[in-house]
């Protein structure tokens, strides 16, 4: 049975779109037919992160008005991965009920429907969440992000979404080691949410959309595996501090 998963956070700038794109690709690489829906209709960036912004011809709003079919609108990103774009022009058209209809239609064609939610808990959040069966909540190890994420999780609970997995992004191993940052396990326990993934802080994530760095691909692959198979394999950020080479690097810095 197809699964519609909303990727949300409450707070902006924590990596929702990056997680949506990379987990989507990792699911596709596992052989799962996956579609990504742009839920941040007014401030869409999923097309840019995926590197397909020049290929957007139609958008979800034009499917609703009958100017294009879903098949014409979907943009193939790679094998088994597509994007349903939504641009600023369609803000008025794409209501929450329309989003539910689109999600349900895509669930018939794909195994995974990932919805990239906008920040905040206003109309755009509601639109993205309403059609979802479950959620991935992204936060960083900062108090403000955790607080907003917790509020978003509680709102989702009131929409009937009980299955919420936590992804802690931008975890710096040296900060975890010296105790200046919350550990992902501490965040998971405080938020009462199961930890589904940990992503290390890396400058390359900010430079490129789809992460090509080995450790990032590995970390996203673990999340996709956890989503797909219900496992709990978590990337060990402290592995970066282990070994003689890394210890020497820390002593010299």
């Amino acid at each position: 049975m197809a699964r519609a998963i909303v990727i949300t956070s409450g707070k902006g700038g924590v990596g929702k779109t990056t997680v949506t794109a990379n987990v989507g690709r990792a699911l596709a690489m596992r052989g799962k037919k996956t579609v990504l829906i742009e839920g941040d209709v007014g401030l869409n960036n999923l097309d840019v992160v995926l590197g397909v912004e020049d290929r957007v011809v139609f958008d979800a709003g034009e499917v609703v008005t009958g100017r294009a079919t879903i098949a014409q609108t979907l943009i193939p990103v790679c094998d088994k991965l597509c994007l349903l774009p939504a641009t600023t022009h369609s803000v008025e058209i794409l209501t929450s009920d329309v989003f539910v209809t689109l999600t349900e239609a895509l669930k018939k064609e794909f195994e995974y429907v990932l919805i990239d939610s906008p920040a905040g808990i206003e109309e755009g959040f509601y639109r993205s969440v309403k059609g979802a069966d479950e959620a991935l909540l992204v936060c960083t190890p900062h108090l403000t992000s955790i607080r907003d994420g917790y509020k978003a999780a509680r709102f989702m609970g009131s929409f009937g979404i009980e299955n919420i997995g936590l992804i802690v992004n931008r975890v710096r191993s040296e900060h975890v080691l010296d105790g200046s940052s919350f550990r992902p396990e501490e965040i998971s326990e405080s938020m009462h949410l199961p930890l589904l993934g940990v992503l290390p802080e890396d400058d390359e994530v900010n430079t490129y959309g789809l992460c090509e760095l080995d450790k990032m691909r590995y970390a996203f692959g673990l999340i996709a595996s956890n989503v797909d198979k219900g496992e709990r394999k978590i990337y060990d950020v402290l592995s970066e501090t282990k070994g003689i080479k890394n210890k020497l690097k820390r002593w010299l810095s």
Binding site: I146, K151, S181, F182, S190
Partner: peptide
Amino acid sequence: MKQRDLVRLKRVLLTDQM
């Protein structure tokens, strides 16, 4: 994380729930 920071985090989350 230091204990006082964890206590602060939990207090903030609980207060929001009130």
